[in-house]
């Protein structure tokens, strides 16, 4: 079976112009502008089988959204080959567009001035969908998302969480084979985030679409994605499972100590570790090989009531990784 998405040597360069500060540079910019190139994606190659959920992770400006824009056909690649479901996405053939759906968390895909039910009617006409089947589907999805009560309220009057649920229903109405989700939970409170995450998880199990998901919430990625792609400065830095990435990247463990009494004086353990006076609970990230040594050193100065160690989780691993990329 051919992959749903295949990308080879993909590059994308953006052009903009550089403006110095001040009024004079604005005046000068009328006739003389200094153009600059920014490489957003560089030599990306990947293959995604049908039905796989991809978590696309990277710092701001790493190139995640640019990759989604190219794969969905929104913008053209500067060079390289892109094949999505057998189509060049940038040609935006109607047959191709009927098979995909794009949900950009920071943009409305539904119509602002009308109620979601009216937007769905419009989508039925655009995608040429069976009205009865679609209405049944809307009801089902709205029941699962617990948002039936807002279907007839204008989009502009809904909360962000309700709006996102409505957007999700709209994005899934035509049963897309590929779903591009760019920050679907951005700005949502924890309840709405969990609700959408659970919904997507159930949807993936049931319909098995190919999903490309970007999110700044690593819980979204770790709970939904089968495969992790990390982009850094326009390059594909990692392509593999989440577990492997965590194992490969984590060279430290978390050491937690509870002292019998708060420390009286500052204690210098090593160049990196200084325990401040008044500390009762201590939380350190240490290399496993140095753990015994550090515990022994601390015990010389302070009575310890409890010692525990923990693995560093995926979210922290990614956070540490992204810090190194900025």
């Amino acid at each position: 079976m051919s992959p749903a998405i295949e990308v080879k040597d993909l590059n994308r360069v953006y052009y903009s112009y550089k403006k110095s500060v001040g009024l004079w540079s604005s005046v000068k910019g009328l006739w003389n502008r200094q153009h600059v190139e920014k490489v957003a994606l560089s030599d990306i190659s990947l293959s995604i089988p049908s039905g796989e959920v991809i978590g696309l992770v990277g710092a701001n400006g790493a190139g995640k959204t640019t990759l989604i824009k190219i794969l969905s056909g929104l913008i053209a690649a500067s060079s390289g080959e892109v094949n999505v479901l057998g189509y060049n996405p940038f040609h935006r053939r109607n047959e191709f567009l009927r098979k995909i759906s794009v949900l950009l968390g920071q943009k409305n895909q539904l119509w602002w001035d009308i109620a979601p039910v009216d937007s769905y009617q419009l989508l039925m006409s655009i995608y040429d969908l069976d009205v009865n089947k679609s209405q049944k589907k809307i009801k089902e999805l709205a029941d699962i998302l617990n948002c039936t009560h807002v279907l007839e309220t204008q989009l502009r009057r809904l909360s962000l969480g309700e709006r996102m649920k409505m957007e999700l229903i709209g994005a899934l109405l035509h049963d897309p084979q590929i779903l591009f989700l760019d920050e679907p939970t951005i700005g949502l409170d924890i309840v709405a985030q969990t609700s959408i995450r659970n919904f997507l998880s159930a949807y993936v199990k049931d319909k098995k679409p190919t999903i490309i998901l970007t999110s700044h919430y690593m819980d979204d990625i770790s709970k939904l994605a089968d495969r992790l792609l990390i982009i850094s400065k326009g390059r594909l830095f990692y392509d593999g499972s989440i577990d492997k990435f965590t194992q490969k990247s984590v060279q430290k463990k978390r050491l937690k100590l509870i002292f019998e009494n708060p420390t009286k004086n500052a204690i210098r353990i090593s160049d990196d570790v200084l325990i401040m006076p008044g500390t009762k609970n201590l939380d350190l990230e240490v290399e496993p090989t140095k753990m015994a040594e550090i515990i022994t050193q601390i015990a010389q100065f302070q009575s310890v009531q409890n010692i525990s160690t923990e693995e560093i989780d995926f979210e922290e691993t990614i956070r540490e990784f992204l810090k190194t990329q900025q």
Binding site: G73, K107, N108
Partner: peptide, 12 residues
């Protein structure tokens, strides 16, 4: 503003 994205990524 880029809200054209929602239009050009649909079959219309």
């Amino acid at each position: 503003t880029g809200s054209i994205n929602a239009i050009i990524l649909r079959p219309m």
